[in-house]
């Protein structure tokens, strides 16, 4: 299956970077104007349905929805080059959540299977406006399961996404067709490739990258365009992910984590893992990010107190799901009041 029409449109737009930036500036600075156009009204309604579908699915499986944190002394450091927003919290530096990852484990320890619909702030590098997949402010559906392993998380993510897609087809199929978006049912299990296999597959189609690093966007897009169903890439190598992804105790350098990739060039859907719970391993892995373990003091203390804090989970980007399901050019079309790195002021 080739790249979706909307992805090609985005590529054409990006062809002239200056012009693209200006177009975005216009689009973002007066977003209330387009927000009431029929196309975007439908998108917002589909977004609401997607959340409803997710809640329906998870609630029926006994998951408990919990409130997400907004600020804390630390947040997720495992994010490509993005800076965290900082606030002065009574003389202490607190971060605005770049993801609720550390708190998901906290609540999974309390309630077992949990989810949150959590807002994230990431001050992304300026060049991420060209990916079509990055916003400075976005929502994630965050899921964590106590006592689960990698494969339980993978399976749940597949079932969740296929349920959500089916739900949207049933409720909005006809309207989406008017938007020019044709949807298909995706039956789990999805195709699953190890990172190693994905690396080989990428090399085969001529998109080369060094084994061991995160798959670059350009190659992820190519791989995505080869597929007509979402697929899983699992077991990323150590050094390419956040410190909380567990390293396989029997196979050094292999992380028990995964991504789900949408087909047709839409790219990453879900990112998840089985979590590291050995305090000594956590300290070592934090050092691999060049940081002082002292920064993550509460988290490390929790890992020791609640030992073994064995959980697995994943996050699904709401705007990315919306973009995919509606066949949109970029995530800046997939939410109201979008914010992109370096573009201000906006509503």
């Amino acid at each position: 299956m080739p790249l979706h029409r909307a992805i090609k449109e985005l590529e054409d737009m990006i062809g002239d970077k200056e012009k693209y930036r200006e177009e975005l500036r216009d689009f973002l600075s007066k977003s209330w104007r387009w927000a009431k156009e029929p196309k975007y009204r439908l998108i917002f309604k589909i977004q609401a349905s997607a959340l409803r579908a997710a809640r329906e699915f998870l609630d029926s499986r006994g998951f408990v929805e919990v409130l997400s944190p907004i600020i804390g002394p630390v947040s997720d450091p495992g994010i490509r080059g993005a800076k965290q927003a900082v606030i002065d919290y009574y003389g202490h530096e607190y971060k605005v959540m770049s993801s609720a990852i550390l708190y998901k484990q906290y609540m999974a320890a309390s309630l077992g299977n949990i989810y949150m619909v959590s807002p994230n702030i990431r001050l992304e590098p300026i060049d991420s406006i060209y990916t079509g997949r990055h916003l400075a402010e976005f929502y994630q559906l965050d899921i964590e399961m106590f006592g689960a392993d990698l494969w339980k998380a993978v399976t749940l993510s597949e079932e969740l996404v296929s349920y959500m897609v089916k739900y949207i087809m049933d409720v909005h199929g006809a309207e989406l067709e008017k938007l020019g978006r044709e949807l298909h049912e995706y039956k789990p299990p999805f195709p699953r490739y190890s990172y190693k296999e994905a690396h080989a597959m990428s090399e085969e189609i001529g998109c080369r990258f060094k084994y061991g690093v995160e798959i670059p966007w350009r190659c992820e897009k190519e791989l995505s365009a080869m597929h007509d169903t979402p697929f899983i890439i699992y077991e990323y190598p150590r050094g390419s992910r956040g410190f909380y992804d567990m390293e396989d105790p029997h196979r050094p350098n292999i992380l028990l984590d995964f991504d789900m990739i949408y087909p047709e060039g839409f790219g990453e859907a879900v990112s998840g893992a089985q979590r590291e719970y050995e305090p000594a391993k956590l300290v070592e892995r934090i050092r691999e990010g060049g940081e002082d373990p002292a920064k993550y003091k509460w988290f490390l203390e929790m890992a020791r107190d609640l030992y073994p804090l064995m959980t697995a989970g994943f996050g699904l980007g709401i705007e990315r799901f919306t973009r995919f399901i509606c066949g949109l050019r970029a995530v800046w079309e997939a939410r109201p009041y979008p914010k992109l790195p370096g573009i201000a002021p906006t509503p």
């Binding site: 690093v213 190598p237 150590r238 892995r285 050092r287 990010g289």
Partner: peptide, 8 residues
Amino acid sequence: SLIRNMRT
């Protein structure tokens, strides 16, 4: 791993 992290 730090070098890999940084390259990513």
